[in-house]
Design a protein around this nucleic acid. Structure first.
Lengths: 159, 159
DNA sequence: ATGCTAGGTTCCAAAAAGGAACTCGTCAAC
DNA sequence: GTTGACGAGTTCCTTTTTGGAACCTAGCAT
């Protein structure tokens, strides 16, 4: 199967990964969340080639994760800004940060820590159940067919 | 910059993505969380080529995300099982599911829903602050230099 | 008029992915 | 006691994607 076809399955993970699941795309979004908005700044902050960066930005704009906004009047210059859909990816990045902090810090502690301005504390992002508020782990969760699966049961694998 | 070098930055996102941030790796882990353990079953459930699958499994074993466990006695057969480090990636997948459910369902509702066995309810995975329990969003969070950044300030970009 | 800046393209070589066939022990069936 | 299947890969070859560097283009500043 080609990677392009991955997003057509009735699986939200596959669909999400078809947009953001390759080399560099999540790094681009990391930079976007840090406030970077311009092509050359993305390029400098990431070290990715301009070629690949241009392609990734284009894809993210097409997917409505970033928005291309003109600035500086008459000259054709653009900023890439997160849309609401893009900002909604923040938990994905927090989950990655959290995992890296726990397992990949090389014994030196986390390179960056996070402060929750609302409550004023340094915090650990925690994935909880919306209903009971308890931290969720894989063994306590059971997948069940949802409405978006109907009529597609033959066409791919769920998840 | 080559992708291989991405993981050497003092940034937990970069380090995490160096392991799981390419095409197929998170799909492999999705299958692992669904209970798949054998080479041919991964291949059938994903549609990835055997070539790529073998390389990804090897890398995940080297990174201690999966563990290769022999089974069936004398014959050299193996199961790939999630380690604790691997199980700790569950929040990353939940965050992806949640985003896909919200933004990529094509108006049909989520293909798969999740039940939290502990409390018995269908739920939405929610990323909250460990200190105050409120849902976290990007604008309320401020990154601060952590201990793992010291002495490396020149060598790369944080995040 | 000359150079700078931002935001790209273009070109080419190197690496990775897609696809199919092949290998290599063990085991069960004929 | 040969044949065939199973599981877990490997090998070979073609197509796509990256990586790296140079080039392009409009407006602006000197």
């Amino acid at each position: 199967m080609k990677w392009q076809d991955v997003g057509e399955q009735p699986c939200s993970i596959a669909r999400s990964l078809a947009i953001i699941g390759d080399r560099w795309t999540l790094m681009v979004l990391r930079s976007a969340f840090l406030g970077i908005r311009r092509f050359d700044d993305f390029q400098a902050s990431l070290g990715v080639t301009r070629h690949v960066l241009a392609e990734r930005l284009k894809r993210l704009v097409e997917a409505d994760v970033l928005q291309k906004v003109p600035y500086q009047g008459r000259q054709e210059r653009f900023e890439y800004r997160l849309t609401e859909k893009g900002r909604d990816l923040y938990p994905v990045l927090l989950a990655l940060v959290n995992w890296g902090d726990k397992w990949l810090d090389g014994g030196m502690g986390p390179p960056v820590q996070y402060r929750h301005n609302t409550c004023g504390h340094m915090f650990t992002p925690t994935m909880v159940c919306s209903e009971c508020g308890e931290a969720v782990n894989a063994r306590e969760v059971m997948p069940v067919a949802g409405p978006g699966l109907m009529g597609m049961a033959e066409s791919g694998k769920p998840g």
